[in-house]
Design a binder for these strands. Structure first.
Length: 210
DNA sequence: GACCAGGCACATC
DNA sequence: GATGTGCATGGT
Protein backbone atom coordinates (compact mmCIF):
# COMPACT_ATOMS: atom_id res chain seq x y z
CA UNK A 1 0.00 0.00 0.00
CA UNK A 2 1.15 3.52 -0.74
CA UNK A 3 2.94 4.72 2.38
CA UNK A 4 1.28 8.11 2.66
CA UNK A 5 -2.18 6.76 1.95
CA UNK A 6 -1.71 4.13 4.62
CA UNK A 7 -0.47 6.67 7.13
CA UNK A 8 -3.45 8.92 6.52
CA UNK A 9 -5.79 6.00 6.98
CA UNK A 10 -4.12 4.84 10.17
CA UNK A 11 -4.24 8.28 11.70
CA UNK A 12 -7.84 8.84 10.75
CA UNK A 13 -8.83 5.47 12.15
CA UNK A 14 -6.91 6.10 15.37
CA UNK A 15 -8.54 9.51 15.76
CA UNK A 16 -12.13 8.75 14.81
CA UNK A 17 -12.51 4.97 15.00
CA UNK A 18 -14.81 2.93 12.75
CA UNK A 19 -17.53 4.96 11.05
CA UNK A 20 -19.69 1.98 10.10
CA UNK A 21 -21.25 3.56 7.04
CA UNK A 22 -23.78 3.94 5.40
CA UNK A 23 -26.31 5.31 7.91
CA UNK A 24 -29.38 3.41 6.66
CA UNK A 25 -31.61 0.49 7.58
CA UNK A 26 -31.25 -1.43 4.30
CA UNK A 27 -29.57 -1.33 0.87
CA UNK A 28 -32.49 0.33 -0.86
CA UNK A 29 -32.42 3.17 1.65
CA UNK A 30 -28.71 3.60 0.89
CA UNK A 31 -29.51 4.06 -2.78
CA UNK A 32 -32.23 6.62 -2.15
CA UNK A 33 -29.90 8.47 0.20
CA UNK A 34 -27.07 8.38 -2.34
CA UNK A 35 -29.23 10.17 -4.89
CA UNK A 36 -30.71 12.63 -2.41
CA UNK A 37 -27.36 13.65 -0.94
CA UNK A 38 -25.97 14.94 -4.22
CA UNK A 39 -24.45 18.33 -3.37
CA UNK A 40 -26.57 18.43 -0.23
CA UNK A 41 -26.06 18.42 3.53
CA UNK A 42 -26.82 14.99 4.98
CA UNK A 43 -29.11 16.42 7.68
CA UNK A 44 -31.42 17.66 4.96
CA UNK A 45 -31.37 14.24 3.33
CA UNK A 46 -32.40 12.61 6.60
CA UNK A 47 -35.43 14.86 6.78
CA UNK A 48 -36.50 13.83 3.31
CA UNK A 49 -35.93 10.14 4.02
CA UNK A 50 -37.93 10.41 7.22
CA UNK A 51 -40.80 11.93 5.27
CA UNK A 52 -40.83 8.80 3.11
CA UNK A 53 -40.41 6.44 6.06
CA UNK A 54 -43.24 7.99 8.04
CA UNK A 55 -45.55 7.29 5.12
CA UNK A 56 -44.11 3.80 4.65
CA UNK A 57 -43.16 4.71 1.10
CA UNK A 58 -39.48 3.74 1.18
CA UNK A 59 -39.93 0.75 -1.11
CA UNK A 60 -39.16 0.52 -4.84
CA UNK A 61 -42.63 -0.10 -6.24
CA UNK A 62 -44.35 2.34 -3.89
CA UNK A 63 -41.95 5.12 -4.78
CA UNK A 64 -42.18 4.35 -8.46
CA UNK A 65 -45.97 4.57 -8.42
CA UNK A 66 -45.98 8.02 -6.79
CA UNK A 67 -46.68 10.98 -9.06
CA UNK A 68 -43.76 13.31 -9.68
CA UNK A 69 -45.54 16.02 -7.76
CA UNK A 70 -46.12 13.92 -4.62
CA UNK A 71 -42.64 12.41 -4.64
CA UNK A 72 -41.11 15.86 -5.05
CA UNK A 73 -43.21 17.23 -2.19
CA UNK A 74 -41.86 14.60 0.22
CA UNK A 75 -38.22 15.28 -0.60
CA UNK A 76 -38.37 19.07 -0.49
CA UNK A 77 -35.99 19.32 2.52
CA UNK A 78 -33.22 17.67 0.49
CA UNK A 79 -33.24 20.52 -2.01
CA UNK A 80 -33.28 20.24 -5.82
CA UNK A 81 -36.48 18.35 -5.23
CA UNK A 82 -37.77 18.44 -8.78
CA UNK A 83 -34.60 17.15 -10.35
CA UNK A 84 -34.07 14.60 -7.60
CA UNK A 85 -37.62 13.27 -7.96
CA UNK A 86 -36.85 12.79 -11.64
CA UNK A 87 -33.54 11.09 -10.86
CA UNK A 88 -35.16 8.75 -8.35
CA UNK A 89 -37.76 7.81 -10.93
CA UNK A 90 -35.06 7.18 -13.54
CA UNK A 91 -33.26 4.83 -11.19
CA UNK A 92 -36.47 3.09 -10.10
CA UNK A 93 -37.45 2.43 -13.69
CA UNK A 94 -34.05 0.85 -14.32
CA UNK A 95 -34.14 -1.02 -11.00
CA UNK A 96 -37.60 -2.49 -11.50
CA UNK A 97 -37.24 -3.31 -15.19
CA UNK A 98 -33.89 -5.03 -14.78
CA UNK A 99 -33.89 -6.39 -11.24
CA UNK A 100 -37.53 -6.40 -10.15
CA UNK A 101 -36.65 -3.92 -7.43
CA UNK A 102 -34.31 -6.41 -5.74
CA UNK A 103 -30.92 -5.25 -4.49
CA UNK A 104 -30.01 -8.91 -3.99
CA UNK A 105 -30.56 -9.63 -7.69
CA UNK A 106 -28.70 -6.51 -8.67
CA UNK A 107 -25.71 -7.48 -6.52
CA UNK A 108 -25.25 -10.70 -8.52
CA UNK A 109 -23.99 -8.72 -11.53
CA UNK A 110 -20.25 -8.19 -11.90
CA UNK A 111 -19.01 -4.86 -10.60
CA UNK A 112 -17.64 -3.35 -13.86
CA UNK A 113 -20.80 -4.25 -15.79
CA UNK A 114 -23.11 -3.00 -13.08
CA UNK A 115 -21.15 0.23 -12.76
CA UNK A 116 -21.63 0.84 -16.47
CA UNK A 117 -25.34 0.15 -16.13
CA UNK A 118 -25.70 2.55 -13.23
CA UNK A 119 -23.78 5.28 -15.04
CA UNK A 120 -26.19 4.99 -17.96
CA UNK A 121 -29.10 5.95 -15.70
CA UNK A 122 -29.89 9.65 -15.92
CA UNK A 123 -28.96 11.31 -12.65
CA UNK A 124 -26.39 8.73 -11.57
CA UNK A 125 -22.80 9.88 -11.98
CA UNK A 126 -19.56 8.28 -10.77
CA UNK A 127 -19.87 9.11 -7.08
CA UNK A 128 -23.48 8.03 -6.81
CA UNK A 129 -22.79 4.83 -8.76
CA UNK A 130 -19.81 3.95 -6.60
CA UNK A 131 -21.67 4.77 -3.39
CA UNK A 132 -24.37 2.34 -4.45
CA UNK A 133 -21.83 -0.34 -5.37
CA UNK A 134 -19.89 -0.03 -2.12
CA UNK A 135 -22.42 0.92 0.51
CA UNK A 136 -25.57 -0.77 -0.79
CA UNK A 137 -24.08 -3.81 -2.50
CA UNK A 138 -20.79 -4.41 -0.64
CA UNK A 139 -18.65 -4.23 -3.77
CA UNK A 140 -14.99 -3.34 -3.18
CA UNK A 141 -14.71 0.01 -4.91
CA UNK A 142 -13.39 3.32 -3.64
CA UNK A 143 -15.77 6.28 -3.58
CA UNK A 144 -14.24 9.67 -4.26
CA UNK A 145 -15.98 12.95 -3.53
CA UNK A 146 -15.34 16.64 -2.96
CA UNK A 147 -13.86 16.01 0.51
CA UNK A 148 -11.48 13.42 -0.91
CA UNK A 149 -10.33 15.84 -3.58
CA UNK A 150 -9.75 18.72 -1.16
CA UNK A 151 -7.95 16.66 1.46
CA UNK A 152 -5.73 14.83 -1.00
CA UNK A 153 -4.87 17.91 -3.01
CA UNK A 154 -3.92 19.79 0.15
CA UNK A 155 -1.65 16.89 1.03
CA UNK A 156 -0.20 17.13 -2.47
CA UNK A 157 -1.21 13.59 -3.36
CA UNK A 158 -3.24 14.75 -6.35
CA UNK A 159 -3.64 17.87 -8.43
CA UNK A 160 -6.53 20.08 -7.36
CA UNK A 161 -8.23 19.53 -10.70
CA UNK A 162 -7.64 15.75 -10.84
CA UNK A 163 -10.48 13.83 -12.43
CA UNK A 164 -12.76 11.50 -10.48
CA UNK A 165 -11.22 8.54 -12.25
CA UNK A 166 -7.67 9.62 -11.41
CA UNK A 167 -8.49 9.89 -7.72
CA UNK A 168 -10.27 6.56 -7.66
CA UNK A 169 -7.39 4.92 -9.51
CA UNK A 170 -4.90 6.26 -6.98
CA UNK A 171 -6.73 4.39 -4.24
CA UNK A 172 -7.62 1.28 -6.19
CA UNK A 173 -4.06 0.81 -7.45
CA UNK A 174 -2.35 1.53 -4.16
CA UNK A 175 -4.67 0.05 -1.56
CA UNK A 176 -5.52 -3.31 -3.10
CA UNK A 177 -8.64 -2.74 -1.13
CA UNK A 178 -11.30 -4.93 0.32
CA UNK A 179 -14.83 -3.80 1.03
CA UNK A 180 -14.05 -2.93 4.63
CA UNK A 181 -11.14 -0.62 3.83
CA UNK A 182 -13.02 1.16 1.03
CA UNK A 183 -15.97 1.65 3.32
CA UNK A 184 -14.00 3.06 6.23
CA UNK A 185 -11.51 5.13 4.27
CA UNK A 186 -14.10 7.14 2.42
CA UNK A 187 -16.25 7.58 5.52
CA UNK A 188 -13.23 8.71 7.52
CA UNK A 189 -12.26 11.27 4.89
CA UNK A 190 -15.77 12.72 5.03
CA UNK A 191 -15.59 12.73 8.82
CA UNK A 192 -12.29 14.60 8.71
CA UNK A 193 -13.66 17.09 6.24
CA UNK A 194 -16.58 17.88 8.50
CA UNK A 195 -14.61 17.93 11.76
CA UNK A 196 -11.82 20.20 10.58
CA UNK A 197 -13.90 22.56 8.52
CA UNK A 198 -12.25 21.33 5.35
CA UNK A 199 -15.79 21.40 4.14
CA UNK A 200 -15.25 25.08 3.58
CA UNK A 201 -13.48 26.09 0.43
CA UNK A 202 -10.06 27.75 0.72
CA UNK A 203 -11.48 31.20 0.07
CA UNK A 204 -14.43 30.82 2.40
CA UNK A 205 -14.83 33.81 4.71
CA UNK A 206 -16.79 32.05 7.45
CA UNK A 207 -14.25 29.30 8.09
CA UNK A 208 -13.39 29.42 11.81
CA UNK A 209 -9.82 28.32 11.09
CA UNK A 210 -9.05 31.65 9.46
C1' DG B 1 -27.37 38.16 3.84
C1' DA B 2 -23.36 35.25 2.47
C1' DC B 3 -21.80 30.88 2.27
C1' DC B 4 -21.89 26.01 2.09
C1' DA B 5 -23.37 21.02 1.63
C1' DG B 6 -21.19 13.25 0.85
C1' DG B 7 -23.25 15.90 -7.86
C1' DC B 8 -25.05 15.72 -12.21
C1' DA B 9 -26.66 16.92 -16.88
C1' DC B 10 -26.53 19.90 -20.43
C1' DA B 11 -25.07 23.84 -23.43
C1' DT B 12 -21.35 26.01 -25.51
C1' DC B 13 -16.83 26.82 -27.13
C1' DG C 1 -11.82 18.07 -23.19
C1' DA C 2 -12.58 22.17 -20.51
C1' DT C 3 -15.65 25.54 -18.62
C1' DG C 4 -20.08 27.62 -17.11
C1' DT C 5 -24.78 27.17 -15.42
C1' DG C 6 -29.20 25.54 -13.31
C1' DC C 7 -31.04 22.94 -9.78
C1' DA C 8 -32.99 24.51 -3.87
C1' DT C 9 -33.33 23.61 0.98
C1' DG C 10 -31.71 24.41 5.73
C1' DG C 11 -27.78 25.24 9.02
C1' DT C 12 -23.94 28.42 10.48
Amino acid sequence: MNKKLRLIYQRLYARFGPQAWWPADNPFEVIVGAILTQNTNWLNVEKAINNLKERKLLEPYKLYKLSHKRLASFIVPAGYYNIKAKRLKSFLKFFINNYQGSTRKMSLVGTPRLRQQLLSVNGIGPETADSILLYALDKPIFVSDSYTRRILSRHRLIRENASYQQIQDLFMQNLKPGVELCNEYHALLVRLGKELCLKTKPKCKICPLK
